[in-house]
Simulated scan of single mutants.
Amino acid sequence: MKKKKLTLKSVIIILLLIFSSYTIVSQQLTMKKIKKDISNQQKELELVKEKNQKLKDEFELSNTDLYKEKQVRERLGYVKPGETPVIDSNSK
Results as ranks from 00 to 15, higher is better:
1 M>A: 12
3 K>S: 10
3 K>T: 14
4 K>Q: 07
6 L>N: 08
8 L>R: 12
9 K>Q: 09
9 K>D: 11
10 S>L: 12
11 V>P: 03
11 V>A: 09
11 V>F: 04
12 I>M: 05
13 I>H: 00
13 I>C: 02
15 L>E: 06
15 L>Y: 05
15 L>W: 07
18 I>H: 01
19 F>E: 00
19 F>T: 04
21 S>T: 15
23 T>L: 11
27 Q>W: 04
27 Q>F: 11
28 Q>W: 02
29 L>A: 06
29 L>F: 12
30 T>Y: 09
31 M>L: 13
31 M>R: 15
33 K>M: 00
34 I>F: 00
35 K>S: 09
35 K>R: 14
37 D>Y: 05
38 I>H: 01
38 I>A: 07
38 I>T: 11
40 N>I: 15
40 N>P: 01
43 K>R: 13
43 K>S: 10
44 E>T: 08
44 E>D: 10
45 L>P: 02
47 L>Q: 13
49 K>H: 07
50 E>K: 15
51 K>G: 00
53 Q>D: 10
53 Q>I: 07
54 K>M: 10
54 K>H: 06
55 L>Y: 02
55 L>R: 03
56 K>P: 03
56 K>W: 03
57 D>V: 13
58 E>P: 02
59 F>S: 08
59 F>G: 01
60 E>Q: 12
61 L>V: 10
62 S>W: 03
62 S>C: 07
62 S>D: 14
62 S>G: 07
63 N>A: 02
64 T>L: 10
65 D>Q: 14
66 L>W: 04
67 Y>F: 15
67 Y>K: 12
67 Y>W: 15
69 E>R: 11
69 E>M: 10
70 K>V: 08
70 K>Q: 11
70 K>F: 13
72 V>P: 03
73 R>G: 02
74 E>T: 08
74 E>D: 14
75 R>V: 04
75 R>G: 01
76 L>P: 00
76 L>V: 05
79 V>H: 07
80 K>M: 03
82 G>K: 04
82 G>T: 00
82 G>S: 00
83 E>S: 07
83 E>M: 00
83 E>W: 01
84 T>R: 08
84 T>S: 07
85 P>Y: 04
87 I>K: 13
87 I>Q: 10
89 S>T: 02
90 N>T: 11
92 K>Q: 09
92 K>E: 11
